[in-house]
Design a protein around this nucleic acid. Sequence first.
DNA 1: CACGTTTGATCGTTACCCTCG
DNA 2: CCGAGGGTAACGATCAAACGT
Lengths: 413, 413
Amino acid sequence: MSAPGSFVHQYSLNEVFASRLRLAIFSERNLSKRNSSLPVTLLTTAKPKDSMLTGFGSASRSGGLVDLGHRATIEDVAARAGVGVGTVSRVLNQQKHVSRVMREKVEVAIAELNYRPSRLARALSKGGSDIVSIVAPYITRPSVVARIDSCLAGLNRVGIVASLFGVFNRAQFDQVIDTLSDRHSTMALVVVSIPVTDAQARGLRSANVNLVGLDIDVAGSDSVFVDNIHGGEIVGTHLLSRGYHQIGFIGDADSGKFQFTSTDARLCGLRSALRQGGSSLEIGHIKLCEHGTSQAKECAMELLTSNRPPDAIFASSDTGALGVLSAANELGVRVPEDLGVVGFDNLEMAAVVGLSSVLQPLSLSGEIVAERLIRQLTQSDAHPVHTMLDLELVERTSTSRVPNLVRQLQPTT
Amino acid sequence: MSAPGSFVHQYSLNEVFASRLRLAIFSERNLSKRNSSLPVTLLTTAKPKDSMLTGFGSASRSGGLVDLGHRATIEDVAARAGVGVGTVSRVLNQQKHVSRVMREKVEVAIAELNYRPSRLARALSKGGSDIVSIVAPYITRPSVVARIDSCLAGLNRVGIVASLFGVFNRAQFDQVIDTLSDRHSTMALVVVSIPVTDAQARGLRSANVNLVGLDIDVAGSDSVFVDNIHGGEIVGTHLLSRGYHQIGFIGDADSGKFQFTSTDARLCGLRSALRQGGSSLEIGHIKLCEHGTSQAKECAMELLTSNRPPDAIFASSDTGALGVLSAANELGVRVPEDLGVVGFDNLEMAAVVGLSSVLQPLSLSGEIVAERLIRQLTQSDAHPVHTMLDLELVERTSTSRVPNLVRQLQPTT
DNA sequence: CACGTTTGATCGTTACCCTCG
DNA sequence: CCGAGGGTAACGATCAAACGT
């Protein structure tokens, strides 16, 4: 019985970790100090943990299951079925050269022991894992999770469960990519919104990791993205056509953190459309702030209370546009009469509050990525495809100066 | 050189996968069929993939890096440093019995080869991995991602990068838990909102996986959650105190999918508060629908256009409450004069639209879970702690009957 | 020579047991 | 006899080659 030893591993592993966790002691203390002044109630602190340490007792808890005290290995199965491990492996991998009798014997043993092959050992042996990973920033943002969710759903449809890494900055992103650039770690990788360097792409390729870009273009790999410059142009053209001329812009300032390009691109497009329309964008009418409703609201407040307030504001996200609407409402500025407002992403909430917004096919983008990924995994000779999705302005009341159109609340999803 | 062979692995691996992907062919075809009628533009379909197959070329791309053609192993490092693998391992794990000279030699070799130990091989050898996993449903919901995000942030602070599994139903959840119930797969696991069965908890424990419940209570494990019944009570009491008596309820109907309990609990609390206040909840005033703004809006429409419309509606989420507000607005029902509206979660958007809502400390819950987890990993003798966080009603205009406080953000006439 | 089965090498690390100064 | 380092079984699987019938 090697089980007792296996429990010791837990401790040694923790000790290894302890060195990396020295920081934790502090943040932990701070946290618990904070907690004491917060609405936290400790209910119980009980439970003996003997059962955790033994784990043996009551051999057959349910059905005909046999409890070995540790997770069954292929060897346990082989022993119980009275065959060699190779035979079990062949059964597992649906290979030939296994007689009906043996196969059944093995299957019975597998069921009895509740055996599951270790993905780790399998990956190590095969020289590649069967895991699909997704790396994404800002998983709290609706536009990001909408993409991820539909991508997950698409992968799920064929039985793939992907694991998601949410990163907070470039350094962390780089670290995750580095970890994943290992033939054993992952079979495929979807990177959302964060630009991938050539070196990183090369590293992944040489580790046989299939890379797909979602909301970014990656040279030499599949990718699905939109033309943000064009998105800005659409907005500019639309606002001009509605008779707005003093256009303001509120965008995300955190571009440097991940080297995002979407805000810049949209601003660039807006500028170009205004220029073409004989208008222009005043420096004072451009505000950059952290992504968020309240942050955008502040910016809008500044713009609207300035000497030369704009008569329309383009927020580079619906989340921000909501802040603009809120600011206008608070200041008594009428939308759309005194102020036109346009957002980006066309989230569900845009329809609810009557916000004009640029529709980018978020869930479609995720689906296509899933599709591309599946194709890469099935067809090894697939060439990289760069897919650009079109953008489209969904016009609602926030830019409509015609009163009788105000009732138009239902969008074209 | 074993490199050429390693590339072949890719293909064989794909073939193994192909059998599981038979379904994919169909969904793929369907998808691409659909695409043809959608705004999709294919830009390029080029790029030779020779470089992918060789991976050797240009030996030293940057600095003094040496390219072996394959990811360096501990053996490569040992060879280059002129030592045995054991020594390299000792250096890597900060162990004793390594002289200064040797350590430096090894470190140089590691740098030159850009060597990273394989987590897989390490986990297999040590009998346990150093990965932290999170399993959660509905990652598109703000309340869920808010929790996850703060938990990730807390873990990140001490250098832990967790991987997140988004699941779509019970079966998938069970599958993920089963996969993770392997001593090699993960060191710790956070389960969000989905009830964990005793058998699952036992399985995880016997695999030495530290389990923490977030938004659920797990017997025998750390967990952080709220008292949803009390949440319902708070709302009921508040509405009664504002003079609302015909209370309606709109909740999520998908409870069965994951066996969620929060909607039921909140309804139960609401009922009990009304009963105590001498009122009651009419059967016809209870609506259950899929989670979402538009779905809740439909339910609200039905309620408000019925023979006996309620004078207040409690939606079990802010997302739903937004739909209620939208419905009221569309029907010309004044909020809060004719209709009181209360939501749950107190998302940022609640403040923007003046929605009264029950504040549950979403990000705090994630932080505490991170803290508990770190404690478990550092102190092996920690007892399980069940933490219940308090709820609190944030009162805004949607339940305030003083007319001049009413703010109307929606595009009303 | 088919077919079924066992055996041993391999994947990259760690842990343990040696052997030297 | 101790401290520094070298070999070599594990870990749990896959796969090819050898082996009986």
